[in-house]
Design a binder for these strands. Structure first.
Lengths: 360, 360
DNA sequence: TTGAAAGCGGTACCAG
DNA sequence: CTGGTACCGCTTTCAA
């Protein structure tokens, strides 16, 4: 690979001039620039990114950390991020945080190696944050609110409430919750928040919560199916299940079918996220703009990289009633495209209408 | 951010020693090592990736270029790549090649900035290849065969044949093909190959091909739905459609339902890829191991990075009959879990059984 | 408008 | 085992 020195020599100029041409500096005579350009073409020269990074202190790349890359919801967010970043000069470096520990190692080294960081669903520790701040590396959070860091998030508690209220309104009283294990490292809290919303809604309706109906298991369709298998085999089985994610909801759906239960006649099911699959499974769910959240997060990060101080904001959630919910004991769907709007958006930011439009 | 020099000073040693500790060289007395380690901890030192890259010539990162990041099939492949890479020391730099041109720019600079490259579904030009070869940067292809470059691929022609034969066996004669536009830059050829398989199967069955039934449109559910809408409204509509991807098949499915057609009674549909959605849509499809292909590709690349010269191989495809196909005019599914096995694997490599196992 | 030279923060060779 | 030092390739003053 040719170096800048070779280009300079061939063009009969100094390396500084080549550098100027490379960086589109106006302070180069046209004639000179052309000689340099020719030399670059002749030598098939391409600048060395590492050398440039070392010299400038910037790497032209942003990191995206995402847990559970496996999850469709994360994939959809990533898609939004990728699209926005593809239009910028930054490269996207992906950190798949599947197992704990893996990330803490990375996080330490990251500030120096990256110009910015987008954290999806994960919340960096205060220590991590300090490190980034010290290095002047901006961070933006997606799917996790934060006091000090710009974040694009939704109100998971409100979402959980929404799902549960939908079931309550249909007449259900024995409503189970199926969510993730909550001893997550690094504050992956959405399932827990949705559970809180669930409990709030039950309490508000004066329904006595049955602890046996609040279930948690490893994320994924199969664990949820296994759990639901037991739950639904019980004589005191619930008439409805609110799952903290569509993936888990589909697991519950499978388990129910396995047991010969009619959906929604014998069991109503509400999911969360509205991933593409939910639409095809006809799943009633709490929808949030996944791809958009990623895109917004990336835009915020780009803005931060540009020197501005972006402020985060909340995206709306809404209930999408499909065919997995109905009144208990009935066999028809919830009927008439019933859609509750409930964006838990901060009222003080109500004005940001344009920023919060829901694509439907 | 602390530098190696500061650490050295604080530990009372030379920078070389610190570097040795950093790189786990055994040639350091334990006592000295400890002093250095302490200094590192005190200063909260983290090595600078750019400096290291400049010095060693290696960046510890591999690029993954993927077109149409939007496609579920690509996402599933990426998932496999990510999982394997997460277990290595390499970082994953993602290149989303949505629009042409975007990539050619990148490709030029890539060899220097990356230790290796994994190209998904895309085929680099010979020129690109030369550049990588010259830079000693290994490339591995996923979903695209190649003579000179290790690749993990499937036989798309065989897959197209498989789908079409399935329909022919059911008794269909008017079989349409719905695929991507074929004037793709950079050799994204799978749709075209599947079409060839379709045509071969028709010819082998002695069915006169009707050019009006071979359709191509932009990739995606909606374009396919629009196309199918016209195709199916025609009085001489086909009794079956083979779509070059599940996404397009779902579009056809929607269009058919829109027209009030019974599936599979009035129209049989076969997709391709067996993405997660296919399972829920009950779509008959040609399955290929998507996630596995990504994982395999990543393993190959890791092997190449390790100095070995890996050889690519072919992964099997098979038909999965679900409920969108039946004999023409009947209203039931294709029945008894009929599954054709047809991995178009190179017979000379037949021995590599272990490497080609199908997960079902 | 241009060139010389001093870093940027490591690695690795060469002495000792 | 350890330290000094010459690069790695580019950017960016500083002078000319």
């Amino acid at each position: 690979m040719a170096t800048i020195a070779e280009v300079a020599k061939r063009a009969g100029v100094g390396v500084a001039t080549v550098s100027r041409v490379l960086n589109a500096s106006p302070a180069v005579r046209d004639q000179t620039r052309q000689r340099v350009l020719d030399a670059i073409a002749d030598l098939d020269y391409a600048p060395n990114a590492a050398a440039r990074a070392l010299s400038t202190g910037r790497t032209e790349s942003v990191g995206v950390v995402a847990p559970f890359f496996t999850r469709p919801s994360v994939m959809e967010r990533l898609r939004g991020v990728s699209h926005v970043l593809a239009g910028s000069r930054y490269q996207l470096v992906l950190f798949d945080v599947e197992r704990p520990g893996q990330d803490s190692r990375s996080f330490r080294d990251l500030p120096g190696a990256l110009d910015g960081l987008l954290s999806i669903s994960l919340c960096p520790t205060d220590e991590d944050l300090e490190r980034f701040e010290a290095a002047g590396t901006p961070i933006v959070l997606v799917d996790h609110p934060h006091e000090r860091v710009p974040a694009v998030h939704t109100d998971d508690v409100a979402g959980g409430r929404l799902a549960t209220e939908h079931l309550l309104e249909l007449g259900h009283r024995r409503i189970a919750f199926v969510g993730d294990l909550e001893h997550n490292y690094h504050g992956f809290t959405s399932s827990a928040m949705r559970r809180v919303g669930y409990q709030e809604a039950l309490a508000a309706a004066g329904v006595d919560p049955d602890p046996a109906l609040t279930c948690r298991t490893a994320h994924g369709r199969e664990p949820a199916a296994a759990l639901a298998g037991e739950l639904l085999a019980s004589p005191s089985r619930p008439t409805a299940v609110f799952a903290a994610s569509d993936t888990q909801a589909v697991g519950v759906l499978e388990a129910a079918r396995e047991l010969g239960l009619q959906i929604p006649g014998d069991l109503s099911i509400v999911g969360y996220d509205d991933i593409e699959l939910a639409r095809y499974a006809g799943l009633t769910t709490v929808a949030q703009p996944l791809e958009e959240s990623g895109a917004r997060g990336a835009e915020l990060l780009l803005a931060a990289l540009d020197g501005t101080t972006p402020i985060g904001h909340q995206l709306p959630v809404r209930l999408v009633a499909r065919s997995t919910t109905s009144a208990p004991g009935r066999s028809r769907g919830a009927g008439a495209r019933q859609q509750h709007q409930a964006d838990g958006r901060d009222r003080r930011r109500q004005a940001r209408q344009d920023g919060n439009r829901v694509r439907s």
